[in-house]
Computed example of a mutant assay.
Amino acid sequence: MNYDYIVVGHGIAGAILAYTLRKQGQQVLVIDEPRANSASRVAAGLINPVAGKRFAKSWLVDTLLPFADSFYDELEDRFQKKLFHHKPIYKIFSTIEEQNNWMAKSAGDNWSAYIGATHTQSTGVESVQDRFGGIMIRQGGYLLVADTLDLLTNELLEAGLLLPERFDVSQLQLTEQGVSYKNIRAGHLVFCEGWQVVHNPYFRWLPLQPTKGEVLEVETQDFNPECIYNKAVYVVPVGEGRFKIGATYNWRQADELPTPEGKAELTERFEQITSQPYHVKKHWAGIRPAVRDRRPLMGRHPEHAQLSVFNGMGSKGVLMAPYLADMFGNALMGKGEVLPDVQISRYYSLYYDYLKHQNHEL
Score class of each variant (00 low, 15 high):
G246M: 09
H279M: 09
N250A: 07
P258C: 13
L266K: 07
A247S: 15
S275L: 06
W251S: 02
G246C: 08
T274V: 03
R252G: 07
T274N: 02
Y249N: 03
N250K: 05
E256R: 12
R252I: 10
P277R: 04
A264V: 04
K263P: 02
P260C: 12
I273T: 04
R269L: 15
H279L: 12
E268R: 11
E261T: 09
F270H: 03
E271A: 13
L266H: 05
E256L: 03
E261H: 11
V280M: 12
Y278K: 08
R252L: 14
T274D: 02
E271H: 08
Y278H: 14
E268S: 13
N250I: 09
F270Y: 15
E256A: 14
A264T: 11
P277Q: 01
D255G: 11
G246F: 10
T267G: 02
P260A: 15
Q276A: 10
T259Y: 10
I245P: 08
S275W: 00
Q272V: 00
P260T: 10
T274M: 02
Q276R: 14
T248L: 11
K281M: 09
Q253V: 05
T274E: 05
T248Q: 09
T259I: 06
E271D: 08
E261Y: 04
T248V: 09
I273M: 15
I273S: 11
E261N: 11
Q253P: 00
E265D: 12
P258W: 08
F270D: 04
R252C: 07
I273C: 08
P277A: 03
E256V: 14
G262M: 14
F270E: 06
P260R: 10
L257F: 01
K281Q: 13
R252W: 10
E261D: 14
T259D: 12
Q253K: 11
E271Q: 15
T259V: 10
E265R: 06
A264C: 05
R269P: 01
Q272I: 00
Y278R: 07
L257W: 00
I245C: 14
E261C: 05
T274L: 02
P258A: 13
T267L: 15
Q276P: 00
F270C: 04
L266V: 06
E271R: 15
E256N: 12
K281D: 01
Q272S: 06
I245T: 02
R269Q: 15
Q253C: 06
P258G: 09
Q272H: 06
Y278M: 06
Q272A: 09
A247W: 01
T259A: 05
Q276W: 00
H279E: 12
V280I: 14
Q272P: 00
E268F: 10
